[in-house]
């Protein structure tokens, strides 16, 4: 039984219930549930235990960084999804919500990619292009060769610039005539973050009804299980990243260090918890050293003076653009010098 989409500009398109199972975050899924006259109290019924267990499993798998890959009948999927949202909300832990939202996004991403790849079904094709436009305001066109997709450079950048892998940098893409050319996987990857934000915000905006006992108990159980993972962990810095080492070296030789490199050095030292006095003395070999000025500047960066904004360490990308990056193998995968040596393998 196809369900009529409610959004006006998509009104001519009908979405199958199979699709709702894959994309339960679409408004139509909730709509479907409402139409079927489902009530919360029903979740306390013994035969609903399966749904609640599924929901708990779905959360646990997601928070563990994996994707829940079961795909059942749409009634079950939609219910499981909604119960998962309620449980995540009731667990009330930000990192759990974030991880869960991301895993839901990645799950949907897999389905979307498969659907986009079904090139022969032109109708389906345009349907998903419309989903992108409707949910994420992202216009997608099929490229001339019928194999790739193209998006406007500005639309691409607005999303990709927050990805950290080098291959997502514009320079490593096929760019022509104001478009970036992507394959199905890449196109969907581009909106993963928005998918996850969509789910995140859905949970944030929820107001919980009085929960059925069965859900309450399960959510508590899950919370007790997940909480220890998020206890605060610290690690000491044993070695400075190569960009910082380079700056210290230049400084110790009494050579001039460009302003942007000094900002990097100071913000890095602040970030690893070095006291202001010690940081100031790191600059004493600078040809233009003036303790008073340096102290003011370091305190300014620390957010103790002036605008009271605490400055963060410039990103690896920014440093690369300013020729201050001296990356080594050990930098692999980091996006900011403060992560050097800290990233869990």
């Amino acid at each position: 039984m196809p369900v009529q989409l409610m959004t006006s500009n998509l009104s001519s398109i009908r979405m199958g219930t199979g699709d709702l199972a894959k994309y339960p975050f679409l408004n139509e899924a909730g709509e479907y549930l409402r139409e079927s006259g489902f009530g919360w109290e029903e979740l306390d019924r013994p035969d609903m235990k399966d749904i609640i267990d599924r929901a708990a499993e779905r959360i646990e798998v997601g928070v563990g960084g994996n994707i829940y890959d079961k795909l059942e009948k749409y009634e079950i999927e939609i219910l499981t999804f909604i119960v998962s949202l309620i449980m995540v909300k009731s667990i009330g832990m930000e990192p759990v919500l974030k991880k869960y939202a991301l895993s839901e996004a990645r799950r949907a991403e897999e389905f979307l990619t498969q659907d986009l790849k079904q090139q022969s079904e032109m109708q389906k094709h345009s349907l998903f292009a419309k989903i992108f436009e409707d949910l994420f305001k992202l216009k997608i066109e099929v490229a001339e060769d019928g194999r790739l997709f193209k998006v406007r450079v500005a639309d691409y950048l607005a999303r990709s610039s927050h990805f950290h892998e080098q291959e997502w940098k514009l320079i490593n893409r096929l760019v022509q005539g104001g478009h970036v050319y992507l394959d199905a996987d890449e196109t969907v990857r581009l909106v993963r973050n928005e998918l996850s934000v969509l789910i995140y915000e859905k949970v944030k905006a929820m107001t919980l009804p009085t929960l059925p006992q069965a859900i309450k108990v399960k959510a508590e159980e899950l919370r007790a299980k997940l909480a220890p993972r998020y206890e605060y962990r610290t690690s000491a810095v044993t070695e400075y990243p190569p960009c910082v080492k380079h700056a210290i070296e230049v400084m110790s030789k009494g050579e001039n260090l460009p302003h942007s490199a000094r900002v990097m050095l100071a913000t890095y030292m602040l970030a690893v918890g070095k006291p202001v006095d010690e940081i100031v003395m790191m600059f004493q070999n600078a040809p233009d050293f003036n303790e008073k000025i340096t102290r003011y500047q370091v305190e300014h960066l620390a957010g103790m003076k002036g605008s009271r904004t605490k400055y963060s360490v410039p990103s690896c990308e920014k440093l690369r653009n300013e020729n201050l990056c001296f990356a080594t193998e050990e930098c692999n995968g980091i996006i900011n010098p403060v992560q050097f040596g800290r990233k869990r393998k």
Partner: peptide
């Protein structure tokens, strides 16, 4: 006007593109 909403990071990516920084051999 397409470029007006872009944040510093997206603009930095444009700078990288134009100045030829970070092209992977794989590309």
């Amino acid at each position: 006007s397409e470029y007006v909403p872009l944040d510093p990071q997206a603009r930095s990516d444009i700078v990288g593109y134009l100045s030829g920084t970070g092209l992977l051999a794989e590309s």
